[in-house]
């Protein structure tokens, strides 16, 4: 086993819906190591996205801790969490969520610009990343001019741009046709193997599960 990147201790999340309490996650204990290619699977409503949001610092736990590289996320303020996400987490969303007014190149450079990386360096890295996902010839295209598969590949390049500790991909293949999905998975697997980047997916997709080297099953907010 490698070094642990994420340590989750006794994590619970309770949502209030009117007078009812919904236990989205219950007493989760998990460790994710550097370089893992992990899929979190489970039926709808099992807590996959909630768990990913917690790990990414987008949501706060009701109880328990998430420790990323010795940093307890619960101890961070709102602005510290924003900086944490910028510097440590790469997000790949189901709906791609590229910024429509920016080109592919600018979308990938976006986080590096937020990190105040000089534009010459960020541009060079963004081009390399877009080439690595097979979009070297579409760097100046806006998202509206790209197919769903191409947009998701830009999203992966964007997620890698800040050299994050790990990448969280929420149902990354859900909106893609099978060819685009295979292509995307191959790219992510290659990046994982070559650069030892940690990937954590939430998925229903059997193809993602087949590629994953570790599968975490969730059911009713519990690891089973």
């Amino acid at each position: 086993m490698g070094n642990s990147v994420i340590k989750i201790n006794n994590l619970s999340k309770i949502y209030k819906e009117g007078v009812n309490e919904v236990h989205a996650l219950e007493n989760i204990d998990l460790t994710i190591n550097q370089g893992e290619f992990t899929a979190i699977v489970g039926p709808s409503g099992s807590g996959k996205t909630t768990l990913l949001n917690m790990i990414g610092g987008l949501d706060t736990p009701s109880s328990g801790n998430i420790i990323v590289n010795q940093t307890n996320l619960s101890s961070l303020s709102y602005n510290e969490l924003i900086n944490f996400r910028r510097d440590n987490v790469g997000f790949v969303f189901q709906a791609y969520n590229l910024i429509p007014v920016l080109t592919a190149l600018e979308n990938v450079s976006f986080i590096m610009d937020l990190q105040n990386i000089p534009s010459k360096i960020s541009r060079k890295r963004a081009i390399e990343l877009l080439e690595s996902v097979g979009l070297g010839d579409r760097i100046n295209s806006r998202p509206s001019k790209l197919s769903g598969g191409q947009q998701q590949r830009v999203a992966v390049a964007r997620a890698l741009a800040s050299k994050p500790k790990f990448i969280l991909a929420d149902e990354p293949t859900a909106n893609l046709d099978s060819k685009s999905a295979e292509n995307l998975l191959d790219i992510m697997e290659q990046l994982n193997r070559k650069e030892n980047i940690t990937f954590i997916f939430s998925t229903h997709d059997q193809r993602v599960m087949n590629k994953a080297r570790r599968i975490i099953k969730l059911e009713d907010g519990r690891v089973v």
């Binding site: 987008l58 924003i82 969303f93």
Partner: peptide
């Protein structure tokens, strides 16, 4: 879009 940019690290 604001939520996405915020999740990516924009204040």
């Amino acid at each position: 879009e604001f939520s996405v940019m915020s999740s990516l690290g924009m204040k």
